[in-house]
Amino acid sequence: MGSGCEDENCSLASGFAENCSNQDCQWEESDFGMIELGGLSMFHILVCVTVIYILLMLFGLLGNILTILVVWLRPHMRSSTYLYLSSMAVSDLLILLLLPLDLYKLWRPTSWPLGDLVCKLTMFLSECVTFCTILHITFLSLERYLAVCWPIAAKTLLTRRRTRALIGCLWLGACSGNHLEN
């Protein structure tokens, strides 16, 4: 598997090069304003993307924070389904908090002032929480399947304690699975 930098404009496609220290994979500043797509300059596209990112951040932060607050402030809302949803909201919050770094990488693709370690850490965290969200959706779907198809067995199998333990395993699995892949 290559470094992902075979294409000279790979930072446009992926948002950031897989190998943060590879300077051959970055755009040149002079190309920034000259790239056009369907009559729109790269500047106009970046402005549109920035507006969309900001809206996603605002609504995403609000919705996920409210989800966490509702589940944790209302004891009757702490069923296994809502525990999955609140944990997934934490994962989504972490994704949203990384969006400003993605925006920075889009606007300034040739400079990364935070160093190679922070670059790799943000890439790891981004992949980890994305994988964690996928695992949450998968296990929540499985839990709902069991509850619908075998409701009596699900009552004994799907306890809060087991759900909390499984959520912890999901987080550990997402982080360790991501570490092994990178």
Rank of each mutant, 00 (worst) to 15 (best):
N64S: 01
N64Q: 05
L83Y: 06
I68L: 05
P75V: 14
G115T: 10
L98F: 03
R74A: 00
Y53C: 10
L73H: 10
V118R: 03
R78F: 00
T81M: 11
L96E: 02
M88I: 05
I65P: 03
S91L: 08
P109Y: 13
G115Y: 03
I65S: 09
L117V: 08
T67L: 08
L106G: 01
S86P: 05
P75R: 15
Y82L: 10
W107L: 04
L61Y: 12
F59P: 04
G63M: 13
T81G: 05
S79C: 11
V70H: 12
L97S: 06
L121M: 13
T122R: 15
L58C: 08
R74I: 01
C119F: 13
L94F: 08
W107S: 05
M123S: 09
Y53I: 11
R78A: 00
L97K: 11
T122W: 13
G63F: 12
L94I: 15
L73P: 02
S86L: 10
L66H: 08
F124A: 07
Y84F: 12
I54R: 11
L96H: 04
S87T: 08
L117P: 00
S91A: 14
L121K: 11
W72N: 09
V90I: 12
L56D: 04
M57I: 15
V90E: 00
R108E: 02
I95F: 00
L114P: 00
S87G: 07
R108P: 00
C119M: 10
Y53Q: 11
I95D: 01
F59H: 09
H76K: 15
L99Y: 09
L97W: 14
L69T: 11
L98P: 03
L85Y: 04
I95N: 04
V90N: 02
M57F: 02
L58H: 12
L73N: 09
L103D: 08
P75T: 13
R78V: 03
Y84G: 03
